[in-house]
Design a protein around this nucleic acid. Sequence first.
DNA 1: GTGAAAGCGCTAACAA
DNA 2: TTGTTAGCGCTTTCAC
Lengths: 326, 326
Amino acid sequence: MVRLSDVAARAGVSLGSASRAVNGHPGVGAELRERVEVAARELGYRPNPLAKGLRMRRAQLVSLVVPDITNPFFAELAKELELACSERGYQLTLRNSMESADTEREAVLSAADHNPRGVVVVPTGGTVELPDTGEVPLVVCDRSVAGCPAPAVVSDNRLGASAAVAYLRGLGHERIACVAGPAGVRAADERLAGYLAVMGGMPGGGQLVTRGPFDYEFGMVAAHRLFDQDRPPTAVFASSDQQAVGVLHACVQRGLRVPADVSICGFDAIALSALTSPPLTTVRQPVRQIAARVTGLLLDDEAVSPYTTVSLPTELVVRESCAPPP
Amino acid sequence: MVRLSDVAARAGVSLGSASRAVNGHPGVGAELRERVEVAARELGYRPNPLAKGLRMRRAQLVSLVVPDITNPFFAELAKELELACSERGYQLTLRNSMESADTEREAVLSAADHNPRGVVVVPTGGTVELPDTGEVPLVVCDRSVAGCPAPAVVSDNRLGASAAVAYLRGLGHERIACVAGPAGVRAADERLAGYLAVMGGMPGGGQLVTRGPFDYEFGMVAAHRLFDQDRPPTAVFASSDQQAVGVLHACVQRGLRVPADVSICGFDAIALSALTSPPLTTVRQPVRQIAARVTGLLLDDEAVSPYTTVSLPTELVVRESCAPPP
DNA sequence: GTGAAAGCGCTAACAA
DNA sequence: TTGTTAGCGCTTTCAC
């Protein structure tokens, strides 16, 4: 292993000058800088991030805490975030909270111990408060937490949901059901609000709205419940693609054709949504922009006042799962 | 921030003793240990991993480099690995090589700069050699690399494939096609070998074997090619679940019923495989065991000689996508 | 513009 | 068993 002092010795300069040179500090003689750069290259010098981090009280790290990396949407987020970080020379650390607020707390805290440049957390449903990380900045992502001072970067869930439901109405649907996410999860509440805004309140006396987990299972259960009613819906807006896939399967089980008998719309635009038959109409979350915004906040020191929520626009992805009502 | 010296001062002992006490070293007086523990608790002491890592020349980190975390199988692997690491107080860092051997190289090297306890890499298809990481141990995972000294932990791909194909034969199928993975990727070669072993060589004069990427697209393309033949197969064994889903969709497009007309079997047992209609029969990779083995190698210093490949047993998951031939 | 020296928080060798 | 001390590799004052 070659240390900066080796580089300095070879270039015939002091350690301090070598440090200033390799880090591109201003006020370094051109000739000295050149000599140091050559020496560093010849020796194959690689800076030691641990030493640097210790000295600067800040590591070349960004930490991500998600409920479950196995969830395709979080995987997508992790990928974009990792990309944005490594472009700038930062490593991403990953932790799963497994939807447990306690695990999340512990994860955030131990991530902060490493003095990362920031910790990004996608809160669990049960998160009421994020721990104090002292000097380490916290950014909440995807789902915001009420009363949390950390800035949040999220999709415009409300508008996205409205756009989807408006599209369904434009197709001629009137009985549009909503398979909503769990109460308490901000993103779920907002998507439901977007749905309600377009429907003008609870349609069918609230019979058309069900709430539960964002997963496949619940989508299936909810769909069966919905279709068992006297006046079943002709379209279903689901708050996640996973739920939408569940709804789709429930339809297959009941012999309902999609989109001839029932239209289905999801949310997230995960890869899977294009691979179902028929492919799902869905609302794309601007994952790359979210990642860009987060790294902007953390690595470029973009100023944001506490309690700020940055809301990014979604995009309706129209595919074959929707058609006019029968 | 409270340093170990603060704890030492409060406990009225020297810094060295405090260090030994909090780290549970032998040869520390019970009373002293107690005093230090109390002081640490009262002060809310949290060790600084950066300082520790610098001094010990080894950080509390494990690095993972995968082709793409968005691939459900790698997400699963990352999750299990992260779980196993955090249980022992290690952080997991994540990097995507995007199936580029160059990016992978750079990723492994910069991961190694942080002096992690080890770097785990799932090689890209184009990887011919892994970079030298000096003191930092390397473990290859899921796909092994020929001629690479780093120990590998993989599934028994060959046996898994054989079991699946044997199951298909047991059902009565004779024309069983194979949608294989890309040549050069060890796991793909092995699964193909497993298929060939049961089929007793190339069936149909090799007309029933196609090779290509592990993805959905190729599964679809390959299936169409297969079914366009004079004597189409009655069953398809795909080397990945993503390919199998593609095959399934091709069948839907052609009006072939699964499993009445065609049986399909995948590989990996990703969550999606249970969510298709019909659900896919597939071969489960022992992801948790793989993760356990890897952490064993890295964190528990389990001895392995170079060029060793640890092969773990798979499990056939029988679901509705297979039935006797028409 | 450059060099010398201190010190980030910790562990481990050595002394007592 | 405990204390003292050096030093991990780096950045950053402070002199010059």
